[in-house]
Design a protein around this nucleic acid. Structure first.
Length: 154
DNA sequence: GCCAACGTTGGC
DNA sequence: GCCAACGTTGGC
């Protein structure tokens, strides 16, 4: 089992939105970056654990936990001309973009802001800190454990 | 395949 | 709104 961090802008799709889906299962779609796509397609498996990160908002940081519940499948938005994620260069025979389903697990008890992640010696090597701009990124087991401790204690 | 120009992400 | 750090596009 592996660990990942998924970024979302909360006014577009927040941890609350995921929780409010029926059965708490939501489609993680709209990924239009090849590196992130390759992770979704090749590396992320059912049962993998996900940190739900809120980006581009007043309080950026880790807001909750989720679990991968489906294999990757073609992102329907790429075929929808009305969607901002429509991709005219993709075709049904050979879809360019994939998505998958995730299930809500929990909100953090204590929100973990990016500023705090950057200051924490156990977390300063996170892709989130080192690299930043990548909407799907790997998290190590020790990072996962440290984040669990910081967000779920008390 | 190179690379300049342009576009996007995302924290601040 | 700024801007750094990418990523993408397209001419050659």
């Amino acid at each position: 089992m592996n660990y990942w961090l998924f970024k979302s802008e909360p006014y577009a799709y927040s941890i609350d939105d995921l929780k409010n889906e029926s059965d708490g299962v939501g489609r993680w779609d709209g990924i239009r970056n090849y590196q992130a796509r390759n992770l979704l397609r090749d590396d992320i498996k059912i049962g993998d654990q996900v940190l739900f990160y809120h980006s581009s908002c007043k309080n950026v940081g880790i807001a909750g936990f989720a679990e991968v519940t489906s294999e990757p499948y073609p992102d329907p938005l790429q075929f929808d001309p009305e969607s901002k994620y429509f991709d005219p260069k993709s075709d049904l025979e050979n879809p360019r973009w994939v998505c998958l389903d995730i299930q809500y697990k929990a909100h953090v008890k204590k929100f973990l802001p990016l500023s705090q992640i950057k200051q924490n010696s156990e977390l300063e090597e996170m892709v989130l800190v080192k690299r930043g701009r990548l909407s799907v990124q790997p998290v190590t087991e020790s990072e996962w454990d440290a984040i669990k401790k910081l967000t779920m204690n008390d």
